[in-house]
Structure formats: structure tokens, C-alpha cells
């Protein structure tokens, strides 16, 4: 009853918590040319686990900002302007906080839940796997 496949359809969160599910969803997003949204989502989780005393953490925050937020990529397009400004200012002031990407991650997650996740569950790649 609680097979991986049953979990995948339960929620996006359960899909992304399962290794095979996450990789299959990533393959789907690569095909749809919006894999950046998923990589950003995982980067936010990875960032949250980093040690704030480590000098690498500020660098990683800057890299995430440059890669996904500053430019006009799909992640940036799906974020609210205020959210992007908040992150930009935090980095400028070097005020790094574990939760600084939380709002952005939530916004991206909501879009994924409403669009890509629903499309994935009816996609060939998913049905073939099933």
C-alpha cells in the first residue's frame, strides 16, 4: 500500500524525498527545459543545512543568487520581485541567514506543484516507469 509509486502521487514532497522519484522527475524536467526549478529547490535545501560560520556559505548564497535569481532564467521569472530584492539585499549586506531562500523556495514549489508535478503524473516517462 505504501509503495514508492503510491508515495509519488501523494505529494510533490514525497516524490522529491524518494531517490528514484526525484531522478525521474528531474529527467522529465530536463525534457521540458525547466530543470533549473528543481535544482534551485534542492539548492535551497542544501543551503539551509550549511554552517553559517563557514565562509563557503556566503559564497554558495552568492552562487545560488547569480545562477538562478539575478539573471532571467525560469526560476527568476517565477519569483515575486520583492522576494528577489530581499535576497539581493541580504547578499549585498552579507547578512546570510539559513532561511534567506525559504520564501523563494516556497514560491517555486507552489508553481511546481500546480504545473510540472501534475504534468509529470500524466507523462509518458512516468507511465512507462509505472
Amino acid at each position: 500500500p505504501d509503495s514508492p509509486l503510491a508515495r509519488w502521487t501523494k505529494s510533490l514532497h514525497s516524490l522529491l524525498g524518494d531517490q528514484d522519484g526525484a531522478y525521474l522527475f528531474r529527467t522529465f524536467l530536463e525534457r521540458e527545459e525547466c530543470v533549473d526549478t528543481l535544482d534551485f529547490w534542492f539548492a535551497c535545501n542544501g543551503f539551509r543545512q550549511m554552517n553559517l560560520k563557514d565562509t563557503k556559505t556566503l559564497r554558495v548564497a552568492k552562487v545560488i543568487y547569480k545562477r538562478y535569481i539575478e539573471n532571467n532564467c525560469i526560476v527568476s521569472k517565477q519569483l515575486k520581485p520583492a522576494t528577489k530584492t530581499y535576497i539581493r539585499d541580504s547578499i549585498k549586506k552579507q547578512q546570510i541567514d539559513s532561511t534567506m531562500f525559504d520564501q523563494a523556495q516556497t514560491e517555486i514549489q507552489t508553481v511546481m506543484e500546480e504545473n510540472a508535478y501534475q504534468m509529470f503524473l500524466t507523462s509518458d516517462i512516468y507511465l512507462e516507469y509505472v
Binding site: 531517490q19 526525484a22 539548492a43 543551503f47 550549511m50 563557503k56 552562487v63 545560488i64
Partner: peptide, 20 residues
């Protein structure tokens, strides 16, 4: 080697689910 891309990939990789 600690390029920006390496750092980012390591950050993403650290959050990917491990095999259950």
C-alpha cells in the same frame, strides 16, 4: 578545485535523497 559550479553542485547534491 572549488569553483562556483562545484560548490553549487555539492550544495544541490547534499540535499538529494539517498537510496532507501
Amino acid at each position: 578545485l572549488n569553483s562556483d559550479e562545484d560548490l553549487l553542485q555539492r550544495c544541490i547534491g547534499s540535499a538529494m535523497p539517498k537510496r532507501q
